[in-house]
């Protein structure tokens, strides 16, 4: 009989902690149910950006890009440098975004010591005008550079995403614009190959742009959660 009473008292004590535990579990469940789609959506959004080829700027004869690039390569932007002599030479314009990992990779590729090209090379850099480590490094390597704001890149050049490059012939006609690689995240940069093809009168295969959005609009479309930019 005494054992029965013990059981009764203990059983009357049990419900309180159990209720608490149940409540905690319920809260954890609700949190889990809300959190799992959030994470799924977030991670999904990371992946979308990786796969999606980014918008290519318009490259017609009268497009903004054509005009702006011609202007870029014919007018020395920086009075301190040598006067450009583009006549008779092909021009290769690299468009990089200092806040973008892909652009960084391209920048490192451009800085490689063994880089050889007969073309006149420009870097159009979206970066801070006052404090850009890339800018100085590129210039030291002999690139002609020009810093532009993200808005400027869009309004003046019509470019939304980076990195990309453009090729202009000696007559300063825009002959090619595209991303560096045929596939996303590749080390096989195609800029020199495209230039060489154009020089030998061949049409290079089009290259999609993979990388980062530069304009605010594109950035928010690519990364609605603001995880990357």
């Amino acid at each position: 009989m005494p054992s029965t009473s013990t059981i009764q008292t203990s059983s009357s004590e049990v419900p309180a902690p159990r209720k608490q535990r149940d409540l905690r579990r319920l809260i954890a469940r609700v949190a889990l149910i809300l959190w799992m789609p959030t994470v799924a959506f977030g991670v999904g959004s990371l992946m979308v950006g990786h796969w999606a080829p980014l918008p290519m700027p318009e490259a017609g004869e009268n497009a903004k890009l054509t005009t702006a690039l011609r202007e870029l390569i014919t007018q020395p932007s920086d009075p301190g440098t040598q006067d450009p002599r583009t006549n008779g030479r092909w021009s290769l314009v690299h468009v990089l975004f200092e806040g973008c990992g892909c652009s960084r990779n391209v920048q490192e590729y451009l800085l490689a010591a063994d880089r050889e090209t007969s073309a006149e090379e420009w870097v159009l850099l979206v970066a801070s005008k006052t404090n850009s480590r890339w800018h100085s490094a590129l210039r030291a390597q002999g690139f002609r550079t020009s810093i532009v704001s993200a808005e400027g890149l869009l309004t003046k050049f019509g470019i939304e995403a980076a990195p990309l490059f453009a090729v202009l012939d000696p007559e300063q006609r825009l002959r090619f614009v595209g991303g560096y690689t045929a596939r996303k995240q590749s080390l096989a940069y195609q800029d020199i190959a495209a230039l060489d093809a154009l020089r030998s009168g061949l049409a290079p295969s089009p290259l999609p742009v993979f990388g980062c959005g530069v304009s605010n609009a594109l950035q928010s479309a690519l990364d609605p959660l603001g995880l990357k930019y």
Partner: peptide, 27 residues
């Protein structure tokens, strides 16, 4: 889970921004 990531978000993403053609076969 991985299918949902790849497919659902692929189709939910704004069509105006993306060019579907190239990577569909990759998917």
């Amino acid at each position: 889970t991985v299918a949902v990531h790849h497919l659902a978000l692929w189709y939910l993403a704004p069509a105006s921004v993306f060019n579907y053609d190239a990577p569909l076969w990759v998917v």
